[in-house]
């Protein structure tokens, strides 16, 4: 429970916002778990876990629908303004990002199956290592973003939102390394394409995690820090 959501004269309104917050955090936990399992399935060539991630994608989608329904009902019933409006808008946008994290996790699982669940040879460990390093960065970012969203901690949110370069640099480095592998041996092309798609999915998850931090900054401070280069031309 967060103080930012409480204090209304109509106490039921506090309850509605807190319930909504819990639903979003629950969805975030599921999205994090999906990402963790998708990476576990990749590293351990575990097709059963990959299938589980694919099946559970529907649960993430279901939570998105449930939160959207509550958001619409709250807007209709309470006509939120000021901080309450920012809370509702932030929650509504966050579930879209969380749903996409679920999609990307399922995509990683599908690609893992394509790589490992066949009669062909497994890719070399040199090709796989970029997923390990980028996966660790992304999981750390997502875990941090979810804790920030749970506690509505604007200080940590500002740090995460400013951390633009780490993931981009890692992604670009990985692409360069993989290009070298392909140039060295054209037989690596098939696996390399799958790995690039997994890395791209991880890069997207990292961006969605950063978006969650940006929503917390908007929710608490009322400042929209997205797309700073476009803010000046907004009007």
């Amino acid at each position: 429970m967060s103080k930012a959501l409480e204090g209304h004269t109509v106490q039921r309104y506090d309850g509605e916002l807190n319930h909504l917050h819990m639903q979003v955090v629950k969805m975030a936990s599921l999205a994090l778990d999906q990402t963790k399992r998708a990476l576990y399935a990749f590293h351990n060539k575990d097709i059963t876990t990959a299938n589980l991630v694919i099946e559970r994608e529907q649960q993430v989608d279901g939570l998105e629908l449930a939160v959207d329904e509550e958001v619409i009902a709250t807007i209709a019933r309470r006509a939120p303004v000021a901080r309450d409006l920012r809370v509702i808008m932030s929650f509504s946008k966050a579930v879209t990002d969380l749903e996409r994290i679920g999609d990307e996790s399922a995509k990683i699982s599908h690609l893992s199956k394509a790589i490992f669940d066949n009669e062909g040879s497994d890719p070399s460990t040199h090709i796989l290592r970029d997923v390990t390093s980028m996966g660790a960065i992304v999981l750390s970012m997502l875990q941090e973003a979810i804790e920030i969203f749970d506690q509505l901690d604007v200080t940590r949110a500002e740090i995460l939102a400013k951390n633009h370069n780490g993931l981009d640099i890692e992604f670009q480095s990985s692409l360069r390394r993989l290009t070298t592998f392909v140039l060295e041996d054209a037989r690596n092309v098939g696996h390399t394409i799958s790995i690039v798609l997994i890395l791209k999915a991880l890069e997207r998850i990292g961006e969605h995690a950063r978006n969650l931090a940006e929503y917390v900054i908007y929710l608490v401070n009322g400042v929209d820090i997205r797309h700073p280069e476009s803010q000046a031309s907004k009007e």
Partner: peptide, 8 residues
């Protein structure tokens, strides 16, 4: 202002 318009 925030307390008033949000019904707090």
């Amino acid at each position: 202002t925030e307390d008033y318009i949000t019904g707090r």
